[in-house]
């Protein structure tokens, strides 16, 4: 897909530069300074007054159209904003399940809630410490 998008972009840039160069060449002709005949359908304010041959106009419009298509196609893809869709895709895709560093990755955004250490047995730790002290005194 990226290759197609890049090909469309390159084609669009080529045609656009050719069209702009043709328009510039056309502007050098002595006949190009004559005003175009006013449109019979459109009102005066909306008349585009294009003074170019039809092929240059069509080439400009088509190249811009293809460049828009290429720009949209070559941009990175959007991410779903619903948490369920986003997290579901995260758990399914393979590279997101890999742990990159501590607490990052694993595919489950709720992992730090699901796997928490339990409560510390403070009385047991106290007893063990007292035991250890008693042992070190006797030896």
């Amino acid at each position: 897909m990226a290759l197609v998008a890049n090909a469309i972009n390159v084609l669009g840039i080529l045609f656009l530069s050719h069209a702009v160069y043709s328009a510039w060449e056309h502007s050098l002709l002595p006949s190009s300074s004559l005003p175009p005949s006013p449109s019979s359908i459109l009102p005066q304010a909306l008349d585009p007054k294009i003074n170019l041959p039809l092929d240059i106009v069509l080439e400009t419009l088509a190249s811009v159209f293809f460049l828009c298509l290429g720009v949209v196609l070559s941009s990175p893809s959007l991410k779903p904003i619903q948490w369920s869709a986003w997290a579901g895709r995260l758990e399914r895709c393979k590279e997101a399940r890999k742990y990159t560093e501590f607490g990052v990755g694993g595919g489950n955004p709720y992992e730090n809630l699901e796997e928490r250490p339990g409560f510390l047995d403070i009385r047991g730790a106290n007893r063990d410490f007292a035991e250890w002290i008693r042992h070190s005194k006797t030896t």
């Binding site: 328009a23 294009i50 811009v64 828009c68």
Partner: peptide
């Protein structure tokens, strides 16, 4: 990003076609 890129492209096309004011 897409809007910024395509807006300048439309400017190129509009200037080349020689559009003025409202069109």
């Amino acid at each position: 990003n897409i809007r910024a890129l395509t807006a300048s492209l439309f400017g190129v096309a509009a200037g080349t076609l020689g559009l003025e004011s409202l069109p």
